[in-house]
Design a protein around this nucleic acid. Sequence first.
DNA 1: CCATCATGGATAT
DNA 2: TATCCCTGATGGC
Length: 278
Amino acid sequence: MGSRWGDTVILAAMPEGHTIHRLAQDLVATLGSAPGAATVQATSPQGRFADGASLLDGDRLISAEAFGKYLFCHFGGALLHVHLGLIGKFRPNPPDVPGGDTVRLRLENDRIAWHLTGPARCELVTPDEASAIVAGLGADPLRPRTRPTSLHRLLARTAKPIGATLLDQQVVAGIGNVYRAEILFLRGIHPERPSSSLSADEIDGIWSEAKRLLRRGVRLNRIVTTSPAEIGRPLARIDGDDRLYVYHRTNCRRCGSELGTLEIGGRPIQFCPSCQPA
DNA sequence: CCATCATGGATAT
DNA sequence: TATCCCTGATGGC
């Protein structure tokens, strides 16, 4: 269930790039400081980020930004880096909800309390350390004015399957296991195709599809890749089994064919043998 | 109650 | 390639 914040229901979103970009927006909107606005109280109910939290306590959140799945929160006097990993969550609560013993970091003002649980990373970093993290990432389709130039170059250079390179954050940042499967489905590309065999048009297609789907993910705060026309319902009302074409399904949502499953890039991917011929 | 699994990634071998 | 790390929903007993 989502928690309610104003008119917006904020769902417990799943951590691919859209989740992190949406978090950056929501954190600034709810905790961010207009000049003279209230400061943030920071604690670590779990205790594992006690030093960092005490350093942030009483500071102001100036801005927050996402690069792929990496989140950076710029406070007045410190820079917080958060990576949710597979199971991490950063959830909004009413301010009277206390943090439980799994809450690594609690950021609170008079209106809201954000609870960070299960992060792969929660640390204070220097600007140089943050730059080094960002420098190691491929192009992020959710970043403004970003072009797929490096994507073309990196794919041309490797015969590794496209299903593997799309998961590699050094090649393209923000795509995870769900979007990988859905993007390749929508572009009709078999996941085992060697990256270097893709045409320029196919790479541009992957890029624009990623941009479209991830942007939609930010807007909805969840992953929906099916089209309203195909499902026969408005986007906001597409849910459950109808949200995806192939990921974690046994049959193709479009043509009904039995899906294949392969382990590529160390993780399982479903594909439609009919819609994505080899 | 317990085991399993998940939309991720760093680190060891 | 294998192992480990975090949490919590789920399903089997």
